[in-house]
Design a protein around this nucleic acid. Sequence first.
RNA 1: AGUCUCGUAGCUCAGGUGGUUAGAGCGUUACACUGAUAAUGUAAAGGUCCGCAGUUCGAGUCUGCGCGGGACUACCA
Length: 1142
Amino acid sequence: MERKNAGSTGYPEYGQMNMPSIEKQILQWWKENKIFERSVSERSEDKPFVFYEGPPSANGKPGIHHVMSRTIKDMFCRYKTLQGFRVERKAGWDTHGLPVELNVEKQLGITKADIGTKITIAEYNRLCREDVMRFTDVWNDMTEKMGYWVDMNDPYITYENNYIESLWSILKKLYDKGLLYEGYTIQPYSPAAGTGLSSHELNQPGCYRNVKDVTAVVEFKIKKDDKSAFLFESENEDVRFMAWTTTPWTLPSNTALAVGAGIEYVKVKTFNPYTFEPVSVVLAKDLFGKYFSADNAELKLEDYKKGDKAIPYSTGLSAKGRELEGIRYEQLLPYTQPTDGDAFRVLVGDFVTTTDGTGIVHIAPSFGSDDFRVAKQNGIGSLTLVDRQGKFVEEVNDAVFPLEGRYVKEAYLTDAEKEQEFHLQKEILRVNNIIADLKSYMTADDLIVLKLKLENKLFKTEKYEHNYPHCWRTDKPVIYYPLDSWFIKTTAVKDRLIELNKTINWKPAHTGEGRFGQWLENLVDWNLSRSRYWGTPLPLWISEDKTEEKCIGSLAELQAEIAKSVTAGFMRPYEVTDLHKPQVDEIILVSDTGKPMKRVADLIDVWFDSGAMPYAQWHFPFENEEKFKKSYPADFIAEGVDQTRGWFFTLHVLAVMLFDSVAYKNVVSNGLLLDKKGEKMSKRLGNVVDPFEAIEKYSADATRWYMMRNSDPWENLKFDINGLQDTMRSHYGTLYNTYAFFALYANLDKFVIDEMNIVPLSERTELDRWILSKLQTLVAYVTERMNDYDVTPAARAIEAFVDEHLSNWYVRLSRRRFWKGEMSRDKQAAYETLYECLNVVTQLMSPVSPFFSEWMYKNLTDVVRDKAKANNTPLQHDSVHLTYLTTPDAKYIDQDLEERMELAQKACSLIFSLRKKEKIKVRQPLGKVLIPVLSNKMKEQLQNVESYILGEVNVKEIEYIDDASGIIKKKIKPNFKELGKRAGTKMKAVQNAVMAFTTDDIAKIEAEQKYVLNLEGGDTFELTIADVEILSEDIPGWLVASDAGLTVALDVTITDELRKEGNAREFVNKVQNLRKDKDFQVLDRIKVSVVKNATFEEALNGFKDYICNEVLAKEIVLVESLAEFDEVEMNEDMLQVKVELN
RNA sequence: AGUCUCGUAGCUCAGGUGGUUAGAGCGUUACACUGAUAAUGUAAAGGUCCGCAGUUCGAGUCUGCGCGGGACUACCA
């Protein structure tokens, strides 16, 4: 923005406000003067405030939501700097992980399968390393432009050897504590791709698809023993559990059944619908109706003949699930038996429901995570009769049905394979007299169902459509499959995690207690393993027979082990330069007994990378021990709420495990950024907001302010770009106008703030003292809110102060003081007051709004900087961000003053509304307002601000009326809050009685301070004066308005004298307009000539001095006619006027 | 499915510990002001406080059950 009064020694004046241009100037100035560096280095090292930067990934462009989270981080860091803390801010980059790999694959047009064939791992990882930093320039640019102060010159980068070495040392520490172990879990697995899938991959759009599968309700024959005896009515009764499955191919691997403890089960005697053999089946009572038609309820069991379509049934005894626990059954498909555990029993599982199926769940621990968990808890072994390619293993050796070596899902076969298999099936089934002429390929599910049908083990089969996950790359269905993984035993420290979490200040609290707390309560061990290429390798080497392993904790240790290995002859001398694949995989170490050991192929979860940043960012424990100790734990971190189970969790876990400490003391988790309709921003919907555009067009400050003031950061923000325009116009525009007003007049009066010579408070006007009181109240409030990381109320309070109080009351009512007369003590006080307000507000705003505040601060203070430095006074600081936060000063705060000014504002508003109703413009003076006062205090309060009211509403006097006048009509109503405590259930009756009070009743209670009510039904109730509110809402015969206890009555008679004055004012106004039209300068003297007009002659003569004074006229001449003139409208009359410079 | 969260005017949001006329800003409409003027003021219209039930003399506020939006986690025979 161009300065209009360049070269002047006063306060800079500008044309139209242009925030983006201001920001560019300030950015440049910050850079040249190293303000960020100084804001850190000039604060004492002994007063640190520790902040951790959650590392973003630079392989995508920053979005507007990053502006959100970074504003929060920046704001509190700046705020703490103002409070005198030294806030170091080390930037960081998250560089590993799947998204990086995917990006590279997309660019090259390859898939994971091509790695190692079409492209070497070395080359692949080299590309990942380059790709991940692809957008660093864009990020740095955004960071700078949005005003996020963070040290980007020395960031931590998670792929660097030093960083990884720190991770290794931590892993080793955990390993030594026995907290790192190998186990296996059931994970989504794509046989077609030969890889496990992360939940992230499974959540790709389109992965869950509706597919139709063959389902089966299967019968498991119960073994009769002591536990199950109660289910049998006769020695040879055939009693079976009914279980439903959508994956019949898992049935050979069944090792248990699960029931719900509280679910009621019932035994039903009936016949198998395929074999017609008599059978008793057990299922959930609630689901009984699903399998047995009410139509058949009348049929008798003994009447049944084999082959009948309608099958009779009869319900027998029932039992709760917990009574069935432990009952044994015959293995359904006894191809092979588990080697461990006590299988084929009924278990109780908390996940069992009766929403579908039979209320009894078939458990195949290898192919379902619920299954796995419940089986493990109950000591039941597992069968994994499917291999990694998705084929049945050789144990599934069936004499009739071709299953062994066959794919379990049809989708895994090519058309040719399917055709071939079909012919084979056809032949076998024909030979075995099962199906004479098979028409089409049978899936593994079909074959198993058919087998069960023939073996009298199937109750029902049908097609069922359900949602099933698919591999996003191969499009083939995923299966759940047990995979080896390395785990961190987080459950071992669960109690400490929960305990220490309670000491963290979460904003909002419910994220900590609720979402995070719940997560900790249901903690499972952290699965670290990832079978990928670009990431931190697990530093574990293991011998082929898995009996010996070594965990490596540093580069030096690795080199030492390599040396041993060289001696043992397993490898050549080798200098490790990169701790990634494939280098680390080429290293073969030697075990203590002399066996070769290879590295475990896994990489680790990238969340470990970021969770370890408090240590790894300093290359601790290899370097910087002091630095680390001083910056641990963090005082403050902030990220999106989606990080609750991500970064917030991994930071917490590692801190608790390594140091039995929290990693952060305060954490702000911000909500999501949605578009203005409340929908998630996505490229697909085309509703993303580009941060650069927003900043370029509306400024970073308006964006930041809008985000912080609109709603609490932890709420989702519906981001409306129009809001930025509003923010700029209303908030910044008002502040800018206020400053422009100040600068304009201060320069005219050559006023420059002099810190050594300030008008003392006692000599300032009521209005000055009022706005200063408001200002200090604001400082106290903002400080309190910000200290609690609660920015939104603080920002809103600042807005209200600027708009409502400073601009719309203080400046509006003070205008005359600034433009009238020569420089005086009172004028000085006015300038100083306004200056103080602008300066303090600027400082309070600076954390959220760093650019505009800086610009304003410099405008206000540059002119006195040298002097302030010489005198060592507060304005000596070069930047607002180097200043020290104003501490609220109680001696300025005057509660009564604030209250009575509020009364004045309310009174004015009421009087304006009356004038409006009567269509009397404010320029027309009126004689009198009546204000009923209910107490002496109220009267005094009003008298103190009387002149402001009279001036503002253009009325000559206020008459205060009290009881004695006898003209106030009072109203009474119960004070419910007080009365409710005592009256309780009598409330209604008391209320009615009070509402019915007459004027005399009101007088009586006022006189005696109490009143005994006679209630309906003969009850009495003693009312005290505190139980009621007495208001004066009416003055008969007057024009009255009232609001919340204040009533005003306006005398609207316009006397001749008032009319003349009104006309004089009207004339002044018209002349002022003419001055302006003619582009006269504010201080130009003029001469006014008017053609005589009877209507206004008296007014012009009678108020001549007043008029001359107002319009800076040397004289007013009344003439018969004018050759040149302007015609002006005066209250519907026309007047010919000539205004000229004199 | 579970955990958490939100639901108040056309829009964005305030509404300690329950108290009877539910507020603000923006927008809309009308008017005023015109020495802050691409600024400003005043007023009007606009509400089943998501629904139902309960506790209570009294519920936007407390409890329960639903409905709808969102996030996260998990994925089901």
